[in-house]
Design a protein around this nucleic acid. Structure first.
Lengths: 343, 343
DNA sequence: TTGAAAGCGCTAACAA
DNA sequence: TTGTTAGCGCTTTCAA
């Protein structure tokens, strides 16, 4: 008997705090969650007791009783991709100082794994979900549509978002890059892309469309691979491109890694950039502008996407339906640097 | 009344499954957690019922009743640092397919924030903890020492680890780099380091010790900054180094970003690498070997550290005290490439 | 503004 | 091998 409260693991409970403060357990609970509805006198007694006992709430008990946790689930397709490490940073900056935690799920560019992770997250009663794709399986979409928590889809702007979304117009961004190459006078542009997930496919399509309209499309200059993106892959694709289409005078790279690789391969072959070869990158991680020559890039607002996604989620958690702008376009930037400045 | 089970959110509970299968709740619980101790007949009925109802266990209830979760806490000092993104990848590869989840805490190179995160994680009854540093506050150390779960400290090998550790000998690794520069004939080596956390300080000390013994130390050639590491910072430090000590004929960089930056700065100034300037990097992320010229580096087993840390944790969770090698040295590799090959 | 009672959905401990 | 009983530590009613 008497194995009530302060016994197991010596950790104090709400009841211990209540006894110490001479109030009921629920008053302690309220003092923690919404201090404003508790009288100042009670609050002070409770706060003193909490401090004295070193009380920390048990999130499991809270989750069980309230049917919700402080966990925000974040689904990303990859952990190695630099793009997502910036988004991640934004997300963590966004939850900093709040009572929320982020749990990352990596679905490795597999829609099926993504579906499993969504199911899994949902069973944990998350406070909210951030999802990096628009291309779920029908089952996954159905799960999200009936999710008991807010959901933000990130990276793209799209009408097909389930609940909220924040990103930028990926296709317009690619077109801006293609147009930039054209405007710089390059007339035999190529395209390099790894990891051909649906988003990469769409970007390639946008590149083709623009160049076709401009009368400079040649599919021989489009080099892709399903393998992951890396600097080494950029070198390899560049090498293949140049052997297949030696006339190529510019490349649009679907990713910063590839662009750096393309630059290195050009350097190895003593092909002068930008005079003989123009290079335009996509995303614009820090290293890109430090290259010599510095690389022109279409910059994506990766960190901001993360920060904003969390802000939207938190607002919606605090007051469901309160977020007015449910689909936010953060824009992109065309940043011209040395790698395309022929004039 | 009758608001028992399948009502709130329509989600089925253990009791629903038990009724459907015609067994007791605890039998369902056992079927899920340790199927081998349940009769085949019961197991099949339960499994069918689970499938029929689409039952998913509630982790909060489980955590409350059992006093432990499936969460593995991972504390990292930074999310931008490439080094940790590889460790992260290893960690996620390690938990892949297990019932465990990873929750990342970013303490931003602050021992105080780290202490707060440890406290926070511990209040969530984690299954295990992975910590990226050896330099906790005394309070944080005390928390870890009395943690009710296994703890693995990663990156370094050190006798002062609280419970288990996996990493490599950081000081020997730096000495290997310094020796390599010396062996290549460089006699006026410099050192570049950003983010002077305790680990970076120790590596710098190792560099000084080696060069002092070799008779080639000059503190004017040591350039450091408390700011974060980046390619741009590498360029800046290199620039400062060259203007302060123009005689410098080699640099050991405390981080891959810095080494790439140093290479770019050399390129901009038309300083030939490796003939006039040798460069040795530390960690060896993919991009390093794709540079032109390729960069010599001391390679750290980052992904392996993550994988191994999880393996040790899981083994220890499954059977406390079962991990025999509690302090694992995964070694480093000195990889000579073009950036130091003068001969 | 405060409290009492009744669970949330699961598992530990014991008994059969 | 299976079941019964009694909570885990909190929050949700509802009442005062």
């Amino acid at each position: 008997m008497a194995r009530k409260s302060t016994d197991r693991s010596g950790r104090p409970t709400l009841v211990d705090v209540a006894k110490e403060a001479g109030v009921s357990a629920i008053t302690v609970s309220r003092t923690i969650r919404s201090p404003e509805i508790v009288s100042a006198a009670a609050r002070q007694k409770v706060e003193a007791a909490i401090r004295k006992l070193g009380y920390t709430p048990d999130p499991a008990a809270s989750a069980l009783a309230s049917h919700s946790t402080s966990t925000i689930g974040l689904l990303v397709p990859s952990l190695t991709n630099n793009v997502f490490s910036d988004v991640l940073r934004g997300v963590y900056d966004g939850v900093e100082g709040t009572r929320y935690f982020v749990q990352i799920g990596n679905y490795r560019y597999s829609a099926l794994e993504e579906e499993g992770l969504i199911r899994n997250f949902l069973s944990q009663r998350p406070a909210g979900l951030v999802i990096s794709s628009m291309d779920q399986t029908p089952a996954a979409r159905a799960l999200l549509e009936s999710a008991p928590c807010p959901v933000v889809q990130i990276m793209e702007i799209a009408d097909r978002a389930v609940d909220m979304s924040v990103g930028f117009d990926q296709l317009a961004a690619v077109r801006a890059g293609a147009r930039h190459l054209f405007d710089c006078g390059y007339r035999r542009p190529g395209f390099l892309s790894a990891r051909m997930d649906p988003r990469a496919q769409r970007r390639l399509a946008a590149f083709r469309d623009f160049n076709e309209a401009a009368g400079v499309l040649d599919d021989r200059r489009i080099m892709t691979t399903p393998q992951p993106s890396s600097v080494g892959m950029g070198r390899l694709l560049m090498e293949q491109l140049l052997s297949r289409a030696p006339e190529t005078d510019a490349v649009m790279c679907n990713n910063d890694d590839l662009a750096v690789g393309a630059l290195m391969e050009a350097k190895r072959r003593n092909i002068p950039v930008p005079s003989m070869l123009g290079i335009c990158s996509f995303n614009d991680i820090e290293m890109v502008r430090q290259m010599v020559p510095s690389l022109t890039a279409v910059a994506s607002p990766r960190r901001e996407i993360g920060v904003r996604a969390i802000a939207m989620l938190l607002a919606e958690i605090a007051e469901p339906g309160s977020v007015a702008d449910r689909h936010v376009d953060l824009g992109y930037q065309m940043i011209a640097r040395e790698s395309t400045s022929r004039r």
